[in-house]
């Protein structure tokens, strides 16, 4: 926006002092150009993830096994649309327009969470996504609810309240399948096997390989490192898996008495980078689905505009 490319060092120092005091930065406050850019990048990626995240589960709405599950899934997917909108609206306070951000998503320029580039092969995937993916999102978003940028933090507070339902409905569905027929058990175990590692990757690269993360931490956007959050997620999830007698696909998983952590094996970072760079199982399919939805929605937007124009004309005529 108006901020010059090289920021005045005195203003940067004053800004960093505000961050150090734990103050919350608001849209009209002065901020370093880099802070604004990093926030736009991070928040828009987050918003895109909510929107693209509707696709893998949306696939199953018409095939939900009962009306109860169908209602839950519809409500959850609708919430994700809401989450995308809250965060787009927060991103716009930084001086960008939503249509630019949506344009970057549809053109393939923008990134979103790589987890949504994996396929949902069976109904059990829907439960496991609620349990793992929304569970991981809660760990991450609870931290972001204390972010230094006010509009982002407030969106996260609202989102965290809704995510608890997402996780619980998923875990309930998983627990139901886990105590079902041998076929249902095998189906849910298979979904767990496929989603576990990609869920751990959701927290991003190890801290030492994450330059963006370091900068975001320095400015109080992120309050915890990727590795710490990932460990927290593993510690929360292992007992939940044990409670429903499901195995997590990691032979190296073991409890460390001294640290109180569940230690886990090597993450396949090659797979992570392959998916991030666009070659995951569903990258192309997801973008194609978003583009199709956007194009097919054009008539709705046109109709809304025509209606509004007609209303305006009749108000003028009546006046």
């Amino acid at each position: 926006m108006q901020t010059p490319h090289t920021d005045d060092p005195a203003r940067v120092a004053a800004f960093e002092a505000r961050i150090a005091r734990g103050e919350v930065i608001e849209p009209k406050d002065w901020m370093p150009d880099r802070y604004r850019k990093q926030l736009v990048r991070m928040m828009s990626q987050h918003a895109h993830s909510e929107i693209v995240g509707m696709l893998p589960e949306g696939n199953w709405i018409t095939r939900a096994p009962s009306l109860r599950r169908k209602m839950s899934l519809l409500a959850k997917v609708q919430d994700e649309a809401g989450h995308g909108l809250y965060i787009y609206c927060g991103t716009e306070t930084l001086g960008v327009d939503r249509h630019e951000l949506v344009g970057d998503l549809l053109s393939g320029k923008a990134k979103y969470s790589s987890i949504f580039n994996y396929p949902t092969l069976t109904w059990a995937d829907v439960g496991v996504i609620g349990w793992f993916v929304d569970g991981a999102a809660i760990v991450n978003q609870t931290m972001l609810a204390k972010a230094s940028y006010g509009p982002y933090a407030r969106a996260m507070v609202r989102i965290c309240k809704e995510e608890n339902f997402h996780k619980r409905q998923g875990y309930e569905s998983v627990a139901t399948l886990a105590r079902g027929t041998p076929g249902q058990r095998a189906m849910v175990q298979d979904a767990v096997n496929r989603w576990w590692w990609p869920s751990l990757m959701m927290f991003g690269p190890n801290d030492k390989d994450s330059p963006n993360s370091a900068e975001l931490t320095r400015w109080g956007v992120k309050k915890k490192g990727n590795d710490e959050l990932r460990q927290r997620f593993v510690n929360l999830t292992v007992p939940q898996a044990q409670a429903v007698h499901l195995t997590l696909p990691d032979p190296a998983l073991k409890y460390n008495e001294a640290s109180g952590n569940w230690e886990f094996g090597q993450i396949d970072w090659d797979e992570f980078w392959t998916v991030v760079k666009g070659d995951g199982p569903c990258n192309r399919e997801r973008l194609a689905a978003r583009r199709k939805a956007h194009e097919e929605g054009a008539w709705v937007r046109a109709a809304a505009e025509a209606h509004a124009a007609k209303q305006r004309a009749s108000t003028v005529a009546a006046a």
Partner: peptide
Amino acid sequence: MSQGKPPDGTPDSQWPLW
């Protein structure tokens, strides 16, 4: 992004902000 442009030329998903 070319579809659905309103007559005043604003982009399709960028209606006024409320």
